[in-house]
Amino acid sequence: MSARHAWSRYVAIGDSFTEGIGDPDPTVPGGHRGWADRVAEVLAARTDDFSYANLAIRGRLLGQIVEEQVEPALALGPDLVTVSAGGNDIIRPGSDPDELAERFDGMVERLRSGGASVVLFTGPDVGMTPVLGMVRGKTAIYNENLHAIALKHGALVADMWALRVLRDPRMWAPDRLHHSPTGHATVAAAVLDALGVDHGLDPVTPEPLEPRPWREARVEDLGWAREYLVPWVVRRLKHTSSGDGISAKRPDLQPVAGTSDTP
C-alpha cells in the first residue's frame, strides 16, 4: 500500500462539476462517477475506516451552495472538504467576479472553522469553447480572487487554469460544458497532487487532433447548439435549473471501496 494520509471523512460540495456530470456510470450513486468519486476511491485505498459524502447538485449557484450545502457538510464532521462554486454564476450576464469572491471568502472561512482541510478550484481556461469562452476574462479575475482567498485561509488550490491539457476537446463531454470521463480523471489527479497524495492516475497528454474540414466542424457546431445550447438558454429564460428536483447523490458519509488507481 502507498503512504497513508491524514483524512478519513471527506465531503464534496458544489455543482455539476463535483456531482460528476459528463462521466456517466450506472453502477455508482446518482449514475455519475466524476473526479470526486475517483479522489475518494484513491484516498480510501490509503487509510482505514474512510468515508465519503457528495452533496453537490447540478445547476447550483454560489448562493445556493452556501445556503444548502455548507452547514450540512459541516454537520458531518469532515476533516477534508472540496468546494467548487461560482461557475454557474460567472456565465450569467451581469455577474461580478469580485462580488462573488467576497461570498466565496465567507464560505471558505466557515468551512475552515472546524479545522478541516479545504481544497478549492480555479476555473479552467475555456477560451476555446463557444459559450464559456465569452466569460474568459471574468473567469481569470475570479481565479485571482480564489488564490488570494486560499492564501488567506490556508486552503489548498487545484489550479484548473494552469492545467493546460484541459483545453483539449477530448477533455470535455459532448455538451462542451462538463468534463468527459478523461477530463474527470485528469481533474482527480490534480486534486490528489494538491493534497500531496501518491496515486497512479497518470496525466493524460492526448495526441494532436487532425484538422477537420470547415464544413464538418460547422455541422457539428449546429448540432451541438440545437441539442445543448438552446435548452440551456431556454432554462435561463424560464428561470429553471437542470438541478430542479435533484437530490445529492451521497448525502451521508459512506464507506468507499479503494481503487487500484485506474482511470
Rank of each mutant, 00 (worst) to 15 (best):
residue 218 R to H: 13
residue 97 P to I: 06
residue 128 M to Q: 12
residue 59 G to T: 12
residue 64 Q to I: 00
residue 138 K to Y: 02
residue 131 V to I: 14
residue 155 A to M: 00
residue 139 T to V: 15
residue 42 V to M: 07
residue 2 S to D: 12
residue 218 R to K: 14
residue 127 G to Y: 03
residue 122 T to F: 05
residue 150 A to C: 02
residue 48 D to C: 10
residue 74 L to H: 11
residue 101 A to L: 04
residue 216 E to Q: 13
residue 233 V to P: 02
residue 24 P to K: 00
residue 21 I to D: 06
residue 118 V to T: 07
residue 104 F to P: 00
residue 43 L to H: 14
residue 20 G to E: 06
residue 235 R to W: 05
residue 18 T to L: 04
residue 43 L to M: 15
residue 233 V to I: 15
residue 259 T to N: 12
residue 104 F to Y: 14
residue 244 D to F: 07
residue 78 P to V: 02
residue 15 D to W: 04
residue 243 G to D: 09
residue 194 A to E: 05
residue 250 R to P: 06
residue 162 A to G: 03
residue 102 E to F: 00
residue 25 D to C: 03
residue 100 L to N: 06
residue 212 R to D: 03
residue 145 N to G: 04
residue 160 M to Q: 15
residue 161 W to C: 06
residue 31 G to F: 13
residue 236 R to D: 04
residue 2 S to T: 11
residue 169 P to G: 06
residue 89 D to M: 05
residue 258 G to R: 08
residue 35 W to C: 15
residue 91 I to L: 15
residue 89 D to Y: 09
residue 202 D to W: 03
residue 189 A to K: 01
residue 34 G to A: 09
residue 206 P to H: 00
residue 23 D to C: 10
residue 216 E to R: 14
residue 199 H to A: 07
residue 262 T to I: 03
residue 191 V to N: 02
residue 215 R to Q: 11
residue 82 T to V: 10
residue 176 R to P: 01
residue 172 W to F: 05
residue 259 T to C: 03
residue 198 D to A: 15
residue 230 V to G: 00
residue 114 G to N: 12
residue 94 G to I: 10
residue 66 V to S: 12
residue 168 D to C: 07
residue 69 Q to V: 00
residue 254 Q to L: 13
residue 176 R to T: 07
residue 5 H to C: 00
residue 72 P to H: 11
residue 255 P to R: 09
residue 162 A to D: 04
residue 228 Y to R: 02
residue 140 A to V: 03
residue 123 G to D: 03
residue 102 E to W: 07
residue 86 G to C: 05
residue 261 D to K: 05
residue 250 R to Q: 00
residue 37 D to H: 11
residue 36 A to N: 05
residue 72 P to F: 11
residue 114 G to T: 12
residue 65 I to N: 09
residue 137 G to W: 08
residue 239 H to R: 15
residue 238 K to V: 02
residue 77 G to V: 10
residue 209 L to I: 12
residue 176 R to Y: 05
residue 6 A to M: 04
residue 193 D to H: 07
residue 68 E to H: 13
residue 71 E to T: 13
residue 166 L to T: 03
residue 100 L to C: 05
residue 121 F to S: 02
residue 218 R to W: 13
residue 77 G to L: 12
residue 161 W to E: 02
residue 103 R to L: 01
residue 216 E to V: 13
residue 107 M to A: 12
residue 78 P to C: 02
residue 1 M to D: 09
residue 187 V to P: 03
residue 209 L to N: 08
residue 201 L to Y: 07
residue 8 S to K: 08
residue 164 R to T: 14
